[in-house]
Design a protein around this nucleic acid. Structure first.
Lengths: 148, 148
DNA sequence: ATATTTGCAAAGGATTTGCACACAC
DNA sequence: GTGTGTGCAAATCCTTTGCAAATAT
């Protein structure tokens, strides 16, 4: 199997093995690409960079691999404002929501716990933070209270 | 023009007028549907419910209307794990990211400012919060420091 | 009266799937 | 050796767009 200088490679191999998944060059290459990149990459960016390592990689493999890696927690899904088209009524400008994963109930909450934290985080990261997106998932009291 | 019992209708009309947009039955109906619903609705759910009010509404109108309403802040975009396929490397299980909207630089941060807040929010909303999604947008120090 | 908005249908992209072959275990 | 994973191409799905007719102002 090919070998790539990915800091998380050994870890990744173990995580994959734990889940009964194979450590394929493609999976390690995609992880490597994401790990090395300091920028957001589109699916095609990821494909191109992966092809620099494994020229025959197909687009479908990228999709499948990203799903696998996200499912086992080695990467995470990132949301962009214009990349995701689902909407909910919002009673205030923050528009944060809590979603019940059992019944889909949705509740928006006005106050934003981050306001204070932002400044702190701005200083530490060097980012001037303009906007934020927060969403909570859980079970509403009916679903949590009633049986499964 | 049709009239719907939407608490925010008058407000919506004003906001639309302010922006030079027309208060069409479709826009008010979609807003009404989202406002009345306590649950997350898919695009097709929104179409179906809107058709209960205005039977001839087309799907394209739903998309256009949701965009307009989101742009003027009357509704907000909601992200679901499987509804948005963009990924980034994640160095910890939280996987929160800050994204620079100018150069696309992405930085993940380990600590989660919500940990403490969760319990508090759980009590107030009645939701048992299992998971959360947080993402920040801004400008990295190079982009913020350098000219535009 | 006029410019915006809508509905329909067609176009366009993005993502997924089927299947034979390759490969990690 | 076996079953999972991959590559290719086709199929599918979601979203956007063009245009003529309708309509809010």
């Amino acid at each position: 199997m090919a070998h790539f200088p990915c800091a998380k490679e050994i870890d990744a191999k173990e995580v994959l093995k734990e889940k009964g998944l194979k450590s394929t060059p493609q999976r390690l290459a995609v992880l490597h690409v994401l790990h090395e990149s300091t920028k957001y990459l589109s699916i095609n960016n990821i494909l191109d960079k992966t092809k620099e390592i494994l020229p025959n990689t197909g687009l479908a493999t990228i999709y499948r691999t990203l799903d696998v890696l996200a499912d086992i927690g080695l990467i995470s899904r990132v949301h962009f404002e214009d990349g995701c088209h689902t909407y909910a009524y919002s009673s205030d400008s923050h528009g944060h929501h809590i979603v019940c994963t059992k019944c889909n109930k949705i509740m928006d909450f006005a106050e934003c716990p981050f306001e204070d934290y932002m400044e702190n985080l701005s200083k530490r990261t060097g980012f001037k933070i303009n906007n934020h997106f927060l969403q909570l998932f859980g079970e509403c009291n009916e679903c949590a209270g009633n049986a499964n």
